[in-house]
Design a protein around this nucleic acid. Structure first.
Length: 361
DNA sequence: GAGTCGTGGGA
DNA sequence: TTCCCAAGACT
């Protein structure tokens, strides 16, 4: 799509006018503090504003400065992130905070190359931070912008197939006089008007500009890639009790899925195996102990990005052996009073709730 | 460069 | 119920 200089100016002007009237008031827009903006940008990766706000508020009161974050332990950081998902973001935030303190004297860098080197910050996030905190003319291409631009240009391929063109378009459109405001405005447009399923085209400042709207194609855009069916795993999970009434939990390896979080041990059901057999085998393989599988506690469905699981959770009794951290980082016997100090993934939070409910009923 | 990496909400 | 997808980055 070719855009004349006059049209580009018109697009900028109409978007900024719309934003002045309809833009959202958000906590991290109150200041130009780079630390707060950085935290918000990371939390907002693949995560909706409504979900982020309470986490953001708690985070800033718990870790008000980059020094506070750098000085905290990872477990504390993961606990503050618990429930937000994509936990590598929290691990990277912690790593990056240490770098900012050690290499930049606690002052968040304002050089593009330096910021891009920080773990967890890619091309879109660096644009979001530097344009918002320092008003630098650096474009972004998040999900909102991709959708807005796909409709503006009636893009005939899925956005992942046209990233180069979309970045170029985002660069061209960015208002060099108001880059921070422009980036916020185009994201707000995507988040509140140019919605994925039911865009409110009547309210769009760009409705007279887009070939998609003009030919009524906006509801079919952007094009999507073919989707793959999600694998489904059946998992046996053990809530293992010892004589003093403690429960065995393990810490997952630092990298990969749910890295650094705690969980109840268990594993995938194999062919021609009962859940009880699965649990005894997994516990033997992972922890080198023997358990007696007791009563059924709860069965849970949970969906991750690339697969879904059914968790069959059973009370178990520790009957022999000293637990060894064979497939995990660490193991610990804890009481129900202590357990909420540990960061757990969502599915395991539900198991904890079920244990407490069963105990108090 | 295709896979990996969470969770919640909306339709 | 099921599917989509959200302020993407990393390997």
């Amino acid at each position: 799509m070719s855009l004349s200089r006059a049209k580009i100016k018109q697009l900028r002007r109409s978007l900024l006018a719309w934003y002045q009237q309809e833009g959202r008031t958000l906590p991290w827009r109150d200041s130009s503090d780079a630390y707060g903006i950085w935290i918000a940008e990371i939390m907002l990766q693949q995560t909706q504003v409504k979900t982020v706000i309470p986490y953001y508020q708690r985070w800033l009161s718990q870790f008000p400065t980059v020094e506070a974050l750098a000085g905290a332990d990872l477990q504390q950081v993961l606990k503050a992130w618990q429930g937000l998902g994509y936990y590598a973001r929290a691990r990277n935030l912690h790593k990056a905070a240490k770098i900012v303190v050690e290499q930049y004297q606690g002052k968040f860098p304002n050089q593009l190359e330096a910021v891009l080197k920080l773990p967890g910050i890619g091309r879109t996030t660096v644009g979001g931070i530097l344009s918002a905190a320092f008003n630098q003319p650096i474009s972004i291409l998040d999900g909102n912008v991709k959708r807005v631009l796909a409709r503006l240009t009636a893009l005939t391929v899925p956005p992942p197939k046209a990233l180069k063109d979309l970045w170029q378009l985002s660069d061209i459109l960015l208002d060099p006089k108001h880059p921070g405001t422009f980036n916020q405005a185009i994201m707000d447009l995507g988040a509140t008007v140019c919605l994925p399923k039911t865009p409110n085209c009547q309210q769009c400042p760009w409705k007279t500009h887009g070939p998609a709207y003009l030919s009524n194609l906006q509801h079919q855009l952007p094009m999507r890639e073919a989707d793959h069916p999600l694998p489904h795993k059946i998992i046996g999970v053990a809530v293992i009790w010892n004589e003093p009434g403690q429960i065995l939990i393990d810490k997952r390896p630092a990298k990969g899925l749910l890295g650094g979080l705690w969980e109840f041990p268990g594993g995938k059901l194999e062919a021609n195996e009962t859940i009880e057999e699965c649990i005894r085998r997994e516990i033997r393989e992972e922890l080198a102990i023997e358990v007696e599988v007791g009563s059924h506690l709860i069965t849970l469905e949970h969906a991750y990005t690339h697969f879904r699981v059914t968790l069959h959770v059973y009370h178990c009794r520790h009957i022999g052996g000293e637990p060894q951290p064979i497939e995990c980082d660490e193991i610990r016997w804890v009481t129900l009073d202590e357990i909420d100090q540990y960061p757990f993934p969502k599915a395991n939070e539900k198991i904890i709730d079920a244990i407490i409910a069963a105990k108090t009923s």
